[in-house]
């Protein structure tokens, strides 16, 4: 009997140990190192606030944050719009369960392939001599290739929407599938039109899924550096990229201070989303 009472603790031990070693301890280390000092060749233990001071007082930090928030807002809005309608289509317009699963898998498979390859794959499409420019020029719409397509904010947002929309589709699809179809029938019997059903029945019931998707997209975009570096060709900044650059220069304490600030902001954003929508019952 004692063994069966002990069982859940033993079963939860591996997960606890892994998260303690590779999540809690590393973040504690970042917190510690953010107060350390450094020079051009090494870092050393200390207790200074200069890393935070320099980060917070630098206008570069503020501009970088503004830029990152800009990406987050645009990508969030686009992925929500696209993700909701894709999920809606799958949940309400596809009639057979098999077809639903097949189309859902079609949407999911790219998520399981390499992000880097998916970014590279935009080059032949958006480049100066890429497909889009060639097509537009041959149609006579433009005379010169458009320069802003690749290596620009436009490219960054496009690639992020490409990479992250699935994180919206899946949770929203999940909540839409659980909506009792009788509720929609009842709304229609009571005289609601399609738009009223959408805004008064479906969207309120889809809120938990929207919240989970939003948490994914917001945290992914806030911490992103590889998409910004690759798709902007190094011309745009993001918080993650600023950290990656500090890491490359071995300025670990500065990167750590930045990381702590980013972590606090991300947790505040997640907290704000959770205040608006209660997702507990979804989990």
């Amino acid at each position: 009997m004692t063994l069966s009472r002990l069982a859940p603790y033993l079963q939860a031990t591996p997960l606890t140990l892994i998260l303690a070693a590779f999540l809690v301890l590393p973040i504690a280390t970042i917190a510690m190192v953010s107060f350390w000092d450094y020079d051009s060749i090494q870092i050393f233990p200390a207790f200074v606030f200069t890393n935070y001071e320099e980060t917070i007082t630098s206008p570069v930090t503020w501009n970088t944050y503004i830029n990152t928030f800009k990406y987050t807002l645009i990508v969030w809005a686009l992925t929500l719009l696209i993700g909701f309608w894709v999920a809606y289509y799958l949940a309400f317009h596809i009639r057979s369960t098999t077809m639903q699963m097949v189309l859902f898998l079609v949407c999911t498979i790219p998520f399981l392939t390499s992000n880097i390859i998916r970014m590279i794959s935009w080059i032949p499409f958006l480049g100066r001599n890429g497909l889009l420019n060639q097509t537009l020029m041959s149609m006579g719409i433009i005379n010169q290739p458009l320069e802003f397509l690749l290596f620009s904010d436009f490219a960054v947002v496009l690639a992020m929407v490409h990479l992250y929309t699935l994180f919206m589709v899946t949770p929203i699809f999940n909540t839409l599938m659980r909506i009792d179809r009788a509720l929609i029938e009842a709304a229609r019997d009571a005289g609601a039109n399609g738009w009223q059903i959408l805004t008064n029945v479906i969207i309120p019931l889809a809120k938990p899924g929207i919240a989970i998707g939003s948490i994914f997209v917001v945290t992914l975009v806030m911490g992103d550096f590889i998409t910004v570096r690759f798709m902007s060709g190094g011309q745009s900044a993001s918080v993650g990229l600023m950290m990656a650059n500090q890491i490359a220069l071995l300025q670990y304490p500065a990167a750590a201070a930045n990381a702590m600030i980013l972590l606090i902001i991300v947790l505040m954003l997640v907290g704000a989303i959770l205040r608006v929508v209660n997702i507990r019952k979804e989990l």
Binding site: T16, F22, L23, P26, F225, M243, V270
Partner: peptide, 29 residues
């Protein structure tokens, strides 16, 4: 079981914390 709540939130936190923090943190540790 005792601590199931914190362990659950820790797991979710693992999903939310930006990848670059995990990378930096483990590298530093």
């Amino acid at each position: 079981f005792l601590g199931s709540g914190p362990l659950f939130y820790l797991t979710i936190a693992s999903l939310i914390v930006p990848s670059i923090l995990i990378s930096l943190g483990i590298g530093l540790a």
